[in-house]
Computed example of a mutant assay.
Amino acid sequence: MISWPCMLKLTGDDELIYLESERDFMSECRDLLFCDDDYVIDSAGYCYLIESTSEKLALIKTEQMLAAHEVSNLIRAHEFKKATLCLTKIHFLTVLDAIKSLSY
């Protein structure tokens, strides 16, 4: 079962999208065009592919799981693009803490 909150990682883009709940996922992603390599990372580090049909969006769990340092690296790239934080200070002990940082 997916652990919310999550973040959306689009292929070829360092921007991350914070998703508080499944409702936010549906609302935020309803009109996006997805690439096969786009994925959602949940608070436990599990990765989910996005399956889009004409009727709904679904998250399909993969075997890939990211550690806190891997998610921290994604956050660093995201923040570098915004150029608002000192990147060397970005470090998270848990995936949940990393994902929650996107909500601020």
Rank of each mutant, 00 (worst) to 15 (best):
K56Q: 13
Y18R: 03
W4R: 08
D37R: 13
L59Q: 09
L102S: 04
F92D: 03
D97Y: 02
T84L: 10
A77L: 12
C86S: 12
D36Q: 13
S72E: 04
W4Q: 08
A77Q: 11
A67Y: 14
E28G: 05
E70I: 06
K89C: 12
E15Y: 10
D37F: 10
P5V: 09
L19T: 00
S21Y: 02
T53C: 00
I75Y: 00
E20K: 15
M7Q: 02
E15P: 11
E22K: 08
L66D: 04
Y104W: 09
Y18W: 08
D13E: 10
F34P: 00
E20D: 14
E20Q: 15
K82V: 04
M26Q: 14
S72Y: 00
E22S: 08
V71Y: 03
Y48M: 10
K89F: 10
M7I: 03
C86G: 11
L87D: 04
T62I: 05
T88D: 10
Y46M: 12
E63Y: 13
D24Y: 15
S101E: 06
E55I: 08
A58S: 15
D31M: 05
K56T: 15
L102K: 00
E51N: 10
R30T: 07
H91P: 12
D38S: 04
E55L: 12
L66R: 04
H78K: 02
W4V: 09
L8G: 02
I41R: 04
D24M: 13
T94D: 09
C47P: 07
L32G: 03
Y104V: 14
I17K: 12
V95E: 01
E28H: 10
V95W: 01
D13H: 13
S21R: 05
A98C: 02
E79K: 11
S54C: 15
H69R: 13
I99C: 01
D38W: 01
M65D: 06
L57Y: 06
E15F: 09
R30F: 07
F80Y: 15
I99A: 04
R23G: 09
H78L: 01
S52M: 13
K81E: 05
D38F: 01
I2N: 01
L87I: 09
Y46Q: 11
D42K: 06
D38A: 00
R30A: 13
L59M: 14
G45F: 05
C35R: 14
K82D: 04
S21L: 03
D97F: 02
E15N: 10
T94W: 14
S72V: 00
M7F: 09
G12A: 02
C86Y: 11
D38Y: 02
L16D: 03
A83P: 07
S54N: 13
D31F: 04
L93T: 07
T84K: 09
A58K: 12
L85A: 11
S43P: 03
L102Y: 05
T94A: 09
S27H: 11
I99M: 06
L33W: 11
E55R: 08
T94C: 08
M65K: 12
K61A: 12
C47W: 06
I99Q: 05
